[in-house]
Write a protein that binds this DNA or RNA. Structure first.
Length: 851
RNA sequence: GCCCGGAUGGCGGAAUCGGCAGACGCACAGGACUUAAAAUCCUGUGAGGCGUAAACCUCGUGUGGGUUCAAGUCCCACUCCGGGCACCA
């Protein structure tokens, strides 16, 4: 029997050696160039790792080990994002404390991660639920809370530096003004309330929980918000400076949703009130035949005449019952009611009706629009339904007739029917008309150019136990005090019941001993904020904590931050595409606040982001417990070894692609690793006789150095599948050789080390070395070995391949042209034809064009 | 509906700048070794044609057009699949 690679023994052997030697500990050695390779840290669920996890982790591990062999000081840490609903719910059903469940799950995750041989520096492990960690999450919340955004300097500044308007003199007024400017603030807004979960959900979380069968309704509640909208422009602009997947940048851009247009004031008839609208098409104002305001608009009731009061009240009540999802369902027909009120179109001077409809969203712009049914799909649909007038003010550019009664014309064109005694847009292009109309509005003081963003402020509070407490207290008079730094962390109380309070408050509201207390600093009776932070909070800054994980005085010392993050931030950040918008956007926002205060040196946290693709089940469907098609990495590792799992996951296809699992494929990789093993070792793990201190043949040198080039380039590109294929080709070549030169084998072992670290270490040891292969330099390609004396070229007649020839690499153009003319096959196809042209691509082909 | 990807043998995929399509792996078939099997090694493997064979020829990268001496690669139109957004004025 041929000796198979004894992976079980080898893998556990090297894992304990690495641990013993602290091989993966990262020194803060600032003399070396640094490389920061980061994984999106996992949520430690009770299910443990599935085969999707190791995909991204293996990729960063390969890059980290490769960079280390290239002489970089590599930071490659791991931690756990452990606060959140799943654990809290698990705790309730299993009657175990979330901290206990977390500890258990973390231990299992760590076992599995170590089983796979990832070179994590566990001395830097972090866990978002540990007080020593969340102390700084709270600290950052307070930094945000104690800040306002200075539009002049475009950065966050301490709230103490906020200029107070002269007319405010009462301390209470001043405090209220400050509160209105803070980057963390309290708002009473309609939120997504889930009764069964007893908490609000972020808009983006709603679908996830609805899919699981929970119901979610809209309910106005008191919530903490973060003013991320102040950073909209910077979050948009700085996307240009990072190396991220195009789709992710596009998604973030769309999420931020910048629109340029104008705001304009419409005077209400018989009132001194007016309605402001935002429009991206000020050029169509002459075609605005009615206004629509959202049901929640503050003027809704005042506009409404007695005759319509009942209908409006009914409509508003109906709209309030609908969820955001129902309201934004495109399939349903538009609804609305007339208020009885009228406004003046400032362009035409006409009296136009004001309607209420829920297709206008309260939270965007002013919650009101000027409706131009001739040039907007939605307004057209609404106008048709309710018989409102349609007035065309734009013609297609090519002058074709367009029936706006039938179909709205929404493209750019040429303005018509757009003039009054003061202004005429007629004949102007849409771009010119927009500019001129906006100018006119500005001059009349009834409008201005305006940039509007779709991005909304971040709903930051959750009514649950298992999250960071918000470090704010309230006194009996309703006033509030934020904790000082020396009072952090505000610890979660240790309780045994995590059920919601039943009042819409978090379980913390029921913890009498914790929630009510005497404030030591003031001696006053106080009550803590009972909301906790959302799961996103801890992940907003964890990449910073890895740089200085045990610092009790700062979240990260400046010196270490400067070294590890540098000018560009994390060098490589790999994780799932499901975090393309929220996590990456929220983390960027926090980073920018820290940047404004000089706590970090880079404007962006992650220089390069990459998303690994989904690993599907062997049947091509998503892996899911309900399909019973989930592949467990423990089983694969037991059967084929961790190295085989690692290499297979990298060999399956491009890292970013979704691809199905294949058990046969793992076997193939297992065979490949065995072939590599047998190149070096005979039965019993002794050095093979075929391995000798011989010179490499020039063919072997060529193979070795072209493989080095390919593997090194491909690791930088994260094209691991082709790097592995290159190593397979090199392995096959060496297997076929009578004599295997030691130098060639050593190159192969070093090349494969980042991919299959256990195998490489063992082979390196069998080769007679007592040190780790990871202390070796990664092989360097000697390009002189890549030049060949002869090359094979293709001979074509009329662009079809008719023959091939081997020629000297430095052959002259003239001689190349002649080459084919002595080739039998080429002559056969040229027979009876006259050569009109010869195309020569040096080193590649000669093409005879003849007729 | 809009935005972003993608489509290549029986399967996963390769082809980095427009220059030999199908590297590498899987699967399959034949052979060697073996009493036999497993393991391993060797050979073959896009489709079709002609042939005893070697060789040779034709077709072929989702569909239809185009540019070019030359197209998987560039351009135009379309089909299907995946991801995201979705009344954002």
């Amino acid at each position: 029997m041929t000796m198979a690679y004894p992976f079980t023994a080898v893998e556990s052997k090297w894992q304990s050696i690495w641990k013993e030697r602290r091989s993966n500990a990262t020194p803060d050695d600032f003399s070396k160039p640094k490389f920061y390779a980061l994984d999106m840290f996992p949520y430690p669920s009770g299910d443990g790792l599935h085969v999707g996890h190791p995909e991204g982790y293996t990729a960063t591990d390969i890059v980290a080990r490769f960079k280390k062999m290239q002489g970089y000081n590599v930071l490659h840490p791991m931690g756990f994002d452990a606060f959140g609903l799943p654990t809290e719910r698990y705790s309730m059903t299993h009657n175990i404390h979330p901290a206990e469940a977390t500890a258990k799950n973390v231990a299992n995750f760590k076992r599995q991660l170590n089983m796979l041989g990832f070179a994590y520096d566990w001395e830097r492990e972090i866990n978002t639920t540990e007080p020593a960690y969340y102390k700084w999450t709270q600290w950052m919340f307070l930094l945000i809370y104690n800040s306002w955004y200075d539009d002049a300097t475009e950065k966050a500044r301490p709230i103490d530096e906020l200029p107070i308007p002269q007319h405010l003199s009462e301390p209470k007024e001043i405090e209220a003004y400050r509160d209105s400017q803070r980057l963390a603030f309290i708002s009473h807004i309609p939120v997504n309330w889930c009764e069964q979960l007893g908490t609000v959900l972020a808009n983006e979380e709603v679908d996830e929980w609805k899919e699981k069968g929970y119901t979610v309704e809209r309910r106005p509640m008191r919530q903490w918000m973060l003013r991320i909208t102040k950073y909209a422009e910077r979050l948009l602009k700085d996307l240009d400076s990072v190396q991220w997947p195009n789709s992710t940048k596009e998604m973030q851009k769309h999420w931020i949703g910048k629109s340029e247009g104008a705001e304009a004031k419409f005077q209400l008839l018989g009132s001194d009130e007016s309605i402001w609208v935002f429009t991206t098409r000020p050029d169509t104002m002459f075609g605005a035949t009615y206004l629509v305001i959202a049901p929640e608009h503050s003027l809704a009731d005042r506009i409404t005449t007695d005759e319509y009061r009942e209908a409006v009240a009914n409509y508003k009540a109906q709209a309030a019952l609908k969820s955001d999802l129902d309201r934004t369902d495109l399939a349903t027909e538009k609804t609305g009611v007339f208020t009885g009120g009228y406004a003046l179109n400032p362009a035409t001077g006409a009296k136009i009706p004001v309607w209420i409809a829920d297709y206008v969203l309260a939270h965007y712009g002013f919650g009101a629009i000027m409706a131009v049914p001739a040039h907007d799909e939605r307004d057209h649909e609404f106008a048709k339904r309710f018989g409102l007038p349609i007035s065309q003010t734009v013609l297609p550019e090519n002058g074709t007739v367009w029936d706006c009664e039938e179909t709205p014309f929404t493209d750019d064109g040429t303005s018509i029917n757009s003039s009054n005694s003061e202004i005429s847009l007629d004949g102007l292009s849409t771009a010119e008309a927009k500019r001129k109309m906006t100018e006119w509005l500005e001059n009349k003081g009834i409008g201005a150019r305006k940039i509007q963003y779709r991005l909304r402020d971040w709903l930051f509070s959750r009514q649950r136990y298992w999250g960071e407490p918000i470090p704010i207290m309230y006194y009996e008079d309703g006033s509030r005090r934020a904790l000082d730094s020396d009072e952090l962390p505000l610890l979660l109380p240790d309780v045994s019941d995590f059920k919601p309070a039943g009042t819409g408050e978090s379980p913390l509201a029921n913890v009498e001993k914790w929630v009510n207390f005497i404030d030591k600093k003031t001696g006053r009776r106080a009550r803590y904020e009972t909301n906790t932070m959302p799961q996103w909070a801890g992940s907003c800054w964890y990449y910073l904590r890895y740089c200085d994980p045990h610092n009790e005085n700062e979240f990260c010392t400046a010196e270490k931050e400067r070294y590890w993050l540098g000018k560009n931030g994390v060098d490589l950040y790999i994780g799932g595409a499901e975090h393309a918008v929220l996590h990456l956007l929220y983390a960027r926002f926090w980073h920018k606040v820290l940047f404004d205060y000089g706590y970090v040196t880079s404007a962006e946290p992650f220089a390069r982001v990459f998303h690994q693709g989904l690993i599907l089940a062997e049947d091509g469907r998503k892996m899911s417990k309900s399909f019973k098609n989930v592949v467990n990495p423990d089983e694969v590792t037991a059967k084929y070894g961790a190295d085989a799992l690692r290499v297979f996951e990298m060999f399956m296809g491009p890292l970013e692609a979704s691809k199905p699992w294949s058990t046969n494929g793992v076997e193939g990789i297992s065979r490949f690793l065995n072939r590599v093993w047998r190149l070096v070792a005979d039965e019993g793990g002794v050095l093979s006789d075929l391995l000798q201190n011989a010179e490499m043949t020039s063919e072997q040198e060529y193979a070795a150095h072209s493989t080095i080039k390919k593997v090194a380039e491909d690791i930088d590109l994260l094209s691991f599948n082709t790097a592995i294929s290159a190593m397979m080709i090199f392995t096959n070549e060496l297997t076929a050789a009578e004599i295997r030169p030691r130098a060639a084998i050593e190159i192969l072992v070093k090349l494969i080390a980042p991919f299959a670290p256990h195998l490489a270490e063992e082979l390196w040891s069998i080769l007679g070395n007592s040190t780790s292969v990871f202390e070796e330099k990664f092989p360097i390609c000697d390009v002189s070995k890549l030049t060949r004396k002869t090359v094979e070229i293709v001979l074509q007649v009329n662009s079809k391949i008719r023959s091939k020839a081997i020629v000297h690499a430095d052959i002259s153009r003239e001689d190349l042209e002649k080459t084919g003319l002595s080739d039998e096959s080429v002559l056969k196809f040229l027979d009876g034809l006259t050569v009109r042209k010869i195309i020569v691509v040096p080193g590649k082909l000669v093409n005879y064009i003849a007729n």
